[in-house]
Nucleic acid binder design. Structure first.
Lengths: 192, 192
DNA sequence: GTAGAATCGGAACGGTCGCCCCGGTTTTGA
DNA sequence: TCAAAACCGGGGCGACCGTTCCGATTCTAC
């Protein structure tokens, strides 16, 4: 992977790049991907041209911000994944990811866009593989119903993020997420 | 409510209005609310100006199409609501609404927009009240968990519509919806 | 300090889309 | 059949937004 051979940026360029990333992080998180790029530039105290010097496209900037956030989530997932109770670990992870993602409108937008933006994410691959392992263990122990695959759990996760966000917006507890969690448990009708 | 005192439309106007509605129905259903109004006009064989003669705004046209579809759903709900097994009726309704809504991208868009567009819908009120009655009966009989309110069921319904749509797009069975359905059943931990 | 390169910033471009205007056409009623 | 009223249609306006361009500015190396 050729990464480092790029000559170092000028001091002001490095500073501006960091400012743009910071502004984008805040605005994508609060307003989602629909925020105009000019707003990000203004918030960063630079011109739109400067943003485009560092990121070829608005989408690329969004991806960069997302990668950072998902790498964080990835670390959190890995640190919670190791335990002797895979069932508890799975539901703990589930709740944590839902809560963490639902406060970030940018992540919600990315998830709702059928995850196409997330699929080409290396960090995301780590994240999903760690989560998938926990799911498999939990299913082996009989803590999670066996008739469901990981991509279906992902889909439920996305929906729970959206529902959690709506519940918080309406100042109420996200009981819907509890419903999904209970539905994921081993069901009486489950065939062993 | 003053509705009829409007003088009757000219023959060509009535014909064009119907064509616009039909074209809008098809395009909203397949492409969602994002379809350009010019496309609808072209499909209807009229100019954009004609569309605006009949509907003050694109949003109004969308609402009109939606109202019609929701009135249909309303009838279906009412016809399925009366039975001596409220539990079965509830889950039957749930599945039916999910399937009916998920094939219509326009409805999906309306639902994902936090339902603000749907709230000012008289037909929608009928629809929700019929559904709410079935839910209450099912909860009384112990077929549905008691610790959940109707607006939370609505939220789950919206999510199921989205998940069902994704599943169909990916050519697989919507197992996620089954998970939600099982989660809505009376749980072992439920307090009587 | 100075030349030269890297970078900046914001005006401007191009495309999209909702919406309006108005000259021309069709329908209606007598 | 014909005049008046209703209606049509599509060109065009204005707003928004992602992106580009280029003269002005700032930094770096010597």
């Amino acid at each position: 992977m050729s990464k480092q051979p790029e000559k170092p940026l000028r001091a002001d360029a490095r500073r501006n790049r960091a400012r743009v990333l910071e502004a984008a992080e805040e605005l994508f998180a609060s307003d989602g991907i629909a925020v105009p790029l000019d707003d990000i530039a203004r918030r960063a105290g630079v011109g739109p041209g400067t943003v485009y010097r560092h990121f070829p496209t608005k989408e690329a900037l969004f991806q960069a911000v997302l990668s950072e956030r998902i790498a964080q989530l990835n670390d959190e997932v890995r640190s919670r994944a190791s335990t002797d109770d895979p069932g508890a670990a799975f539901f703990d992870l589930f709740d944590h990811v839902v809560e963490a993602a639902s406060v970030n409108k940018g992540i919600c937008d990315a998830l709702e866009g059928s995850g196409a933006a997330l699929d080409r994410e290396a960090a995301h691959c780590d994240f999903t593989s760690a989560f998938a392992e926990v799911l498999a263990s939990a299913q082996e122990r009989g803590a999670v119903r066996a008739d469901i695959r990981f991509n279906e759990v992902q889909s439920l996760l996305v929906s729970c993020v959206a529902m959690h966000r709506r519940a918080v917006e309406q100042n109420r507890e996200p009981h819907e997420v509890a419903v999904v969690r209970d539905g994921l448990r081993k069901q009486p009708s489950d065939v062993m």
